[in-house]
Write a protein that binds this DNA or RNA. Structure first.
Lengths: 235, 235
DNA sequence: TCTAGTCTGGCACTGAATGCCATACATCGG
DNA sequence: CCGATGTATGGCATTCAGTGCCAGACTAGA
C-alpha cells in the first residue's frame, strides 16, 4: 500500500486533475490515481462512484448547495433562479484550480463534454421545477422552460468566456448584464395571460414593461391607436 | 455462430430496444444483442461504437441530416433554425417504434438521460453556430445562444408531451405554436442593435412583426406617438 | 485469375465497475 | 477498561464494455 497522505476528497480530486492533464484522461487509470493518492482503488469507486465523477465531484456538491439555497430563497421565483445561477457562476470562478483544467479536459473528450452538459441540464431542470412549483405546481410550462434555458444559456455564455480567459476582470459585470437581459426577456413571457395574440397589445408586468406584438403590415395609425387604448385601459 | 438474419442496422437497433425494455438496459449485454441479431459482438462495436450508441444510432443519423439541411437552407438564419427544429421533431414523431421506448429507458437510467441531453446540446450548438455564421462569423453572441436554447427548450417541451402520450393528435399544432412564440421572443433580441433600450420602439423583421418595449410608467400618449413614429420611419 | 480494398468474426487483453469478505477504527453503554 | 456495534477501508475475484490484432470472406477492378 502507498503511504497515507491524500485522504481528503479535495486532495484526491486535485491529484486526479493533475494526472488527467499530464498523462491524458484515458491513459490515467483508477489504479494510478489510487497509487498517487494513497487511497485504494476500491475506496475511490466507493467515494466517487466512477472515474468521471472524480472530475465532477466538486460540481456535484455545488449543485446540492445551489438547489437547497434556491428552494429556501424568499425572493420571487425568477429572482431566486437568477440568484442561484449567480451562485453556480461563483462556484466556478472561485475555484479555477479545478474548473479551468477541467474545462480543457471537457473540450477535448466528448464523453466528458456530455457529462458537463448533463450537469447544466440538471440545473435547468431544477430551475424549471422551482418556477413551476411557485406557479402552482404541475409540470413546467413552456414559458418556464424557455426562461430556465435562457438563464442557463446566458450563464454558460459568460462562463465559457471566463474559462477561456480566467484572468479577465470584467466577468462579474458581464455576468450581471447578461442576467439582466434574461430578466427583461422573461418578464413579458410571464406577464402575458394566455399567449401573445398578434394584433392585441398586452400590458405586461405590474410596473416594468409594456410589450406590443403586431403583424408587420399593420397600419401605423391603427397600431398606435390600439397601443394607446390598451395601455390606458390597464393603467 | 447464430443464424445470419438481422444484418440491417435498423433491425439490430429494434432488437436491442426490445432486449433493453424486456430484460433491462444494464442486464442486456452486447454479447446478448450479438446472439439475438446474428451479428458478432465485435461487429456491433465496430458499427455502433458503444452500447449506448446502439440506442441512439438513429438519432445520430438524424442529426447529420438536419445539420446538412439547415446549412443548405436558403431562408433567414432564424427561419432555417426553426425549420431544422421541425425536422428534428419530425424525426421523433415519425418513428415512435424506437423513440417512445427509448424515452422510457432514458427516463429510468441517468446515464442514458445524460446521453439524450447531450444530443439536444449538440443541436443547440449547431443552431448557435449557424446563426453566428450568418451574423458575420466569430463566436455565437449571447443573443444567438439564448435563442438557440429557447428553440431547443420549446422543442423539448412539446416533444416530451408527445412522448408521454404518442397518440395525441394536436402535437403538430402545439409544436408550431411553440415555435411561433419562440420567434416572437427572438425577434426583439435580433432587431435591437445593441440592447433593448427602454423607450425606443424598434421595428423588427422585414415584414412580420413589430415589437415595442417601454418602461411601464411611460405616458400612454407619448408611447403611442413614439410607436407610430418608428413604424412610419421604417415602412 | 490475380490483386487490392473492405467488411466481418474470433481471440486476447485492458480497465471500469461491482459484490463479497475481512480488517481497522471510532463511538458508546456497561 | 472492555466488549459490542456501526462505519470506512482494503484486498480479491468477477463481469462486461471497449479495443487491438489477425485471419478469412467477399467485392471490384485490372
Amino acid at each position: 500500500m502507498a503511504e497515507r497522505n491524500g485522504g481528503g476528497t479535495r486532495a484526491v480530486v486535485l491529484a486526479a486533475v493533475r494526472l488527467f492533464t499530464d498523462a491524458g484522461y484515458d491513459a490515467t487509470t483508477m489504479a494510478g490515481i489510487a497509487e498517487v493518492t494513497g487511497v485504494s482503488r476500491r475506496s475511490l469507486f466507493r467515494r466517487f462512484g466512477s472515474k468521471e465523477d472524480v472530475l465532477f465531484a466538486e460540481h456535484d456538491e455545488l449543485f446540492e448547495t445551489v438547489v437547497r439555497y434556491m428552494e429556501a430563497s424568499p425572493e420571487s421565483p425568477t429572482d431566486s433562479v437568477l440568484a442561484a445561477a449567480r451562485l453556480v457562476f461563483q462556484g466556478y470562478v472561485r475555484d479555477p484550480e479545478i474548473t479551468v483544467p477541467r474545462y480543457r479536459l471537457v473540450r477535448a473528450h466528448s464523453r466528458l463534454r456530455d457529462r458537463e452538459v448533463a450537469m447544466t441540464a440538471r440545473y435547468q431542470a431544477a430551475f424549471s421545477r422551482h418556477m413551476a412549483e411557485a406557479a402552482g405546481g404541475g409540470r413546467p410550462s413552456l414559458e418556464v422552460e424557455v426562461v430556465a434555458s435562457a438563464v442557463i444559456a446566458a450563464h454558460n455564455h459568460v462562463l465559457r468566456g471566463w474559462l477561456r480567459d480566467p484572468d479577465d476582470d470584467g466577468v462579474w459585470r458581464r455576468f450581471d448584464e447578461a442576467m439582466e437581459r434574461v430578466r427583461a426577456l422573461a418578464a413579458p413571457l410571464f406577464g402575458v395571460p394566455d399567449e401573445p395574440v398578434p394584433g392585441r397589445p398586452t400590458r405586461v408586468g405590474r410596473d416594468r414593461i409594456v410589450v406590443a406584438v403586431y403583424p408587420g403590415d399593420t397600419d401605423p395609425d391603427e397600431l398606435s391607436r390600439r397601443v394607446a387604448e390598451t395601455v390606458r385601459d390597464r393603467r
